[in-house]
Design a protein around this nucleic acid. Structure first.
Lengths: 140, 140
DNA sequence: TCTTGATCCTCTAGTGGCTAGAGATTCTAG
DNA sequence: CTAGAATCTCTAGCCACTAGAGGATCAAGA
């Protein structure tokens, strides 16, 4: 315990200025300070920050994360509300997965079909150039 | 030909201010203007913008797109670079899908349990907070 | 105790990739 | 000729950081 900000950064992979930024926007609470005005953190902050980092990596917006955090910290709160928030999140997550999988398919198809030769035969470029014509004609 | 910017926007799905922005950052060339200083585009710009839009939708960064565009204009060059840009991107997409699926599982578990009246053991935070421990121990 | 160098502080400004809005001009159909 | 849609430039804003200046504090060793 009594972790200084740099150590917190090391443990969570969130950079020091970003931690201060999160405090500023109220995503994490302002921790106690030393006599000399330096921040000191505890174990809960490590968890919370790790959570935030993963959620950010997953592409959730800060506002979204605020909701998830709030939900997780009110175990006694009305189940109705938590339920509907969670369901909305689930829907959103499903949409994301769907889109990423479509994207994945397209990317990997592109890569497969790239003959590793000249640009003029490279499907990566071709596919990006025009989605609708790529299977049919390319001589005008 | 002689397409005004709004028409270009309609044909490519890229918004008017975004087209001007792309010109500003040099992603597309400054087109000729009318007497009255309005931009007029031709067919090549439509293609180029479509390429850009599609690549952006696939999540490629502008700098990557710059590279892909440059490559596409040297048809004799090797497509090795395009291939590696796309592969790196694919890896990233895979990582995202994996994490989202973990989150999805946890969310839907929560929702199930919520149906039974208890959210007091919500583990959303744990799941996202520390990826490495979630399968093993959660009683300290 | 003093010093040194790593870490910390606050503050302002910059980044990417747009997006919005003001206020003026130009184009085009009737 | 005119009305109104589209265009122009410019500035400022958005989100989620990131960088850097300039100074204070902390911990370990001499």
């Amino acid at each position: 315990m009594n972790i200084p900000i740099g150590e917190l950064a090391r443990r969570t992979g969130v950079k020091v200025p970003t931690i201060r930024f999160y405090e500023q926007i109220g995503l994490i609470a302002a921790p106690p300070r030393t006599e000399g005005n330096q921040r000191r953190y505890g174990k809960p902050e490590v968890d919370r920050l790790n959570f935030i980092r993963h959620a950010r990596e997953l592409g959730f917006e800060v506002e979204h994360i605020r909701g998830l955090l709030a939900m997780s910290q009110e175990p006694q709160a009305s189940c109705h509300q938590a339920d509907s928030i969670a369901k909305a999140h689930l829907l959103e997550v499903d949409r994301r997965i769907e889109r990423l999988q479509a994207l994945r398919g397209e990317l990997s198809r592109m890569i497969d079909e790239c003959g590793h030769g000249r640009i003029c035969d490279c499907r990566i470029i071709e596919v990006l150039a025009d989605h609708r014509q790529c299977a049919s004609e390319h001589a005008a």
